[in-house]
Amino acid sequence: MAENNRNSGRTGGGNRGGRPGQGGPRQGGPGRGGKPGAGKSGGPGFKGGKPGGKGSAGRPNAGKPGTQNAKGGKPGAKGPAGKGTGPKGAGPKGAGPKKGQPATSGPRPYASTDRYGRKMPDKVAIYGPHRRRRPKNPPVDRLEVHDAEGVRLQKLLANAGVASRRVCEEMITESRVTVDGDVVTELGVRVDPKTAEITVDGLPIQLDDKLVYYAFNKPEGVVCTMDDQEGRQCISDFLIPHRHQQRVFHVGRLDIETEGLLLLTNDGELTNRLTHPSYEVPKTYLVQVRGPMEKGIGDQMKEGLMLEDGIAKVDSFRLVDSVPGHILVEVVLHSGRNRIVRRLFDAVGHPVERLVRTQVGPIRIGDQKQGVVRDLSKTEVGHLLASVGLSS
């Protein structure tokens, strides 16, 4: 029977798990895991691999000696973990040992370069240099101005509107701040805001929140009083109740025809000094009169003119502008006598047509609109207090 099968016509190659091939002049080799073909031996199976290498992880071939298994890779390297050994390769790409190294040695360690030969990044270039710690402040208990239960000096200055807290700290370290006459350079100093006298660059800082300071641009026709019994328009008509809650009074007076700057405050000491002649606070006026004006009138007003209540004079006289029939003059004087400017120009034969006060001490009216009441800034208050010798 075997003889009949061997000669029973054309034989085919062995298939997977193959049956014996059938006779014929062309015989196939054994299939994968199949029985040997019945014809000529040595032909590869249907899914036989290419000639295999010496990889140790592959299974033995099923065809001729030395052939690769059905699903084997390319010829493997000479090592246990060579590329392509066994089914689809066993070792990672490029992980095999180099020539001349023992097969059991692993990859070389790296520190300054990575596995691809690139230089590791410099941490200083990425994160920058190491930041130095802020030096500790020296103890401040030794200072007489220090009050352990008070408020930090830089916080007090920031709340007073001098600058931000960081800028105030820089002012302290730069020796620009004094407390009770002593220069303070330490940041840990605490002071009592009710009793401390603080200056920045020589200017006093007002720390009392109950004291308010306003600048009012008085229009013509407004009576310079807080309440008029005749029902005329007065200063209180321009105060906004929800903004100007503190009771204030005007510093000095302007007659009903005069316009311009009028200070309002509840600081009694400041008011007394601004209005007292001994402090000689300068006031600047713009005066419009009929022209032309003869030469030498400015010199006469500087030297002094005799009025009904004594000699009066101006500190400065300057021609600002002139148009046909009118001239504009700026005068500065520190006298606070009633209607003093109008009487001076009446004495030289040039009655005043319009009078505007533009400045009192260091406070200017600027571009403030008529009828507007604005808060003085902390800097303006400091300059105003310093002009009359007040430190707080």
Rank of each mutant, 00 (worst) to 15 (best):
D309H: 01
V145E: 14
K54F: 12
D201R: 13
G82H: 02
G260M: 03
L143P: 06
R354P: 07
G31W: 03
S56A: 09
L156P: 02
L355W: 09
K35E: 12
T11M: 07
K47Y: 11
Y127Q: 09
Q233L: 10
V360N: 12
E294K: 06
F216H: 04
E186I: 00
L203Q: 07
G366T: 02
L270H: 01
P65D: 13
I235H: 01
R26Q: 11
D182R: 06
E230H: 07
G181N: 07
Q370I: 06
R190M: 09
L390C: 02
E303V: 02
Q233H: 02
L355A: 05
D122M: 05
K40Y: 11
L384N: 01
V287H: 03
V348R: 10
L264P: 00
I198W: 00
T185S: 03
K218A: 08
G86A: 13
R318Y: 06
P277W: 11
I327W: 07
G94F: 06
G268F: 06
R232F: 05
G72C: 00
G53R: 04
V287I: 04
Q27E: 09
Q229E: 14
Q300D: 05
S105P: 00
A38R: 13
L328W: 13
P51Y: 13
Q27K: 03
G28L: 09
N5S: 10
G221H: 09
E303H: 12
Q206P: 02
P65I: 06
Q245M: 12
K64M: 10
G325I: 01
D309I: 02
L270Q: 07
R247N: 10
G13M: 13
K93D: 00
G91Q: 02
Q300R: 14
M306D: 14
H130R: 10
N61E: 06
Q22R: 09
S335V: 08
E169G: 10
E170K: 13
T104M: 11
P102D: 12
A62D: 07
V331F: 09
R232I: 08
G91Y: 07
D192Q: 02
L263Q: 05
A312F: 01
G86Y: 03
L344S: 04
E144D: 06
G48F: 11
Y127T: 03
T185I: 03
T195R: 14
G45A: 06
G371T: 13
Y116E: 14
R118V: 00
K313L: 12
D201N: 11
G94V: 02
E330I: 01
S105R: 15
G9P: 01
